[in-house]
Design a protein around this nucleic acid. Sequence first.
DNA 1: ATAGCTTATGCAACTAAATTGCATTTATAA
DNA 2: TTATAAATGCAATTTAGTTGCATAAGCTAT
Lengths: 138, 138
Amino acid sequence: MPSDELKSILKKHKLRITDCRTDVLNLFIQKGSALSQGDLEHQLGAYDRVTLYRTLNSFLQAGILHKIPNATGVATYGLCHHTCSPNDHNHNHIHFKCNACGQIECLEDKAVPQISVPKGYQIEVVNMIVDGICPSCA
Amino acid sequence: MPSDELKSILKKHKLRITDCRTDVLNLFIQKGSALSQGDLEHQLGAYDRVTLYRTLNSFLQAGILHKIPNATGVATYGLCHHTCSPNDHNHNHIHFKCNACGQIECLEDKAVPQISVPKGYQIEVVNMIVDGICPSCA
DNA sequence: ATAGCTTATGCAACTAAATTGCATTTATAA
DNA sequence: TTATAAATGCAATTTAGTTGCATAAGCTAT
Ligand SMILES: [Mn+2]
Ligand SMILES: [Mn+2]
Ligand SMILES: [Zn+2]
Ligand SMILES: [Zn+2]
C-alpha cells in the first residue's frame, strides 16, 4: 500500500507517523491475516520487541487493531476494517483459526449470531472463534 | 463434595487417586466457575506449581476439564459437565467472562448457535465467549 | 499383606511472552 | 527553527508455561 495512504490512516487515528508504525500497519494490510507480536518481531527485525509491543498497544487503543481471543496463549491481532475508535470497537465477525498452519483470520463477512444469556448477565462483547482447517491446508 | 464421589470420578477417568487431584477436582466443583493455574496455586498452596500444572493437563486429557479461550493470556479451565473422553470432548456451551470481577463461567444451558463458514473452510470446534457483567457485579 | 512396577510429585532449571523504567531520539505544532 | 510531547531502544523484571530427574506414592498381581 502506498506510503501516503498508510500515513493518512495513522493521522486519522491521531497517531504520530513513525517508520515502525507505518511498517507494522503495512504488514497487517499486506498479510490480511491476524498477526502476533512474535510474527512482527520475525518479519520486522529492524525494530525492538518493546517498540513493536507498544505499537500494537497504540493500535489497539486507537481502534486500528482488535485483539483476537484464542486458547494458545499468544495474543493475536487483526485489522479493524470498520470504523473503530478507542471507546467504541465495533466488531461482529467470526474468527477462524487453522489447526494445521496456526493462522488466524477474520471472516469479515460472517456475522456473529445473536444470542441470549441468563437473567442478570449483561452482554458487552461477543467473540466467536472457529477452529478447523483453512482452505490452504485442506 | 464427599471424598468417595471425588474418587469415583477420578477412577471413572482412569486416573490414579492422589491428594492433589482430589483437592483440585473438589475446588472446581465447589467454585463452579472456571479457574486458572494461578487460581489453583493461590488456593491450594500445599502443592507445587508443576504438580498443579500437570494435574490440569491430566484432567484435560481425561476429559474432566476443558480449556476456555480468552484474550487475557492466562489459560482458564472449566469442568466438563457432559460426558467427555480424551478423544471426544463434547462442549457446545457459551462462556461468560465478567469484565468487573474477571470470573469466567460456563453457561451450560446456552448452546453455541450453528454457523456457516466460507467454502473451503472445515469446522472442527466452535467457541463463543461473551464479555460483560455478571449478576454478582451488576 | 507384600513386592514390584508404574505413575505422580517436588525441586531446580529453563523458555517464552509480556511489561516497566529510563535515557535518548524523533515528530509535530507554535 | 525551536520547544514540547511522544516514540524508541536497551536493560531488566515479571509472569506463565514447560522439561528433566530423583524420590515418593499408588496400584496390581501374587
Ligand atoms: Mn477480526
Ligand atoms: Mn465450559
Ligand atoms: Zn491453515
Ligand atoms: Zn463479575
